[in-house]
Amino acid sequence: MTQWTQICALTDIAPDTGVCALHQGEQVALFRLGQTEQVFAIGNYDPIGRANVLSRGIVGSIGERYVVASPLYKQHFDLATGECLEDDAVTVKAYPVRIAAGQVELAQGAALSV
């Protein structure tokens, strides 16, 4: 059975923004959509800008996909899958994440493979 690690309270993430979590030695960017309980988790490292910054990008949508725009050079990453919309060859990890009792939790073990 999946084990979950508590990261922070949902309310620690301002609506439509991200934060960065340290999880199993990796930097994970967590995003919260508006005032909702919908939360996404992808790697914090921007492979194009080559810095740990994705959690500080602007959250939005393109068509039906939820995305974050990298704060450095504005490429979009799909929040659900980690895919870069501008460059097929680039992907960041996507992590399983859930809300339990108002807390944001990340799964222990391997990252989602996409």
Binding site: D16, T17, G49, A51, R56, I58, L72
Partner: peptide, 16 residues
Amino acid sequence: IGLQDTNDIFLGNMQK
């Protein structure tokens, strides 16, 4: 807060 551009959101200019 969610509207602010990269730099405004932390009230500083992000470097490389």
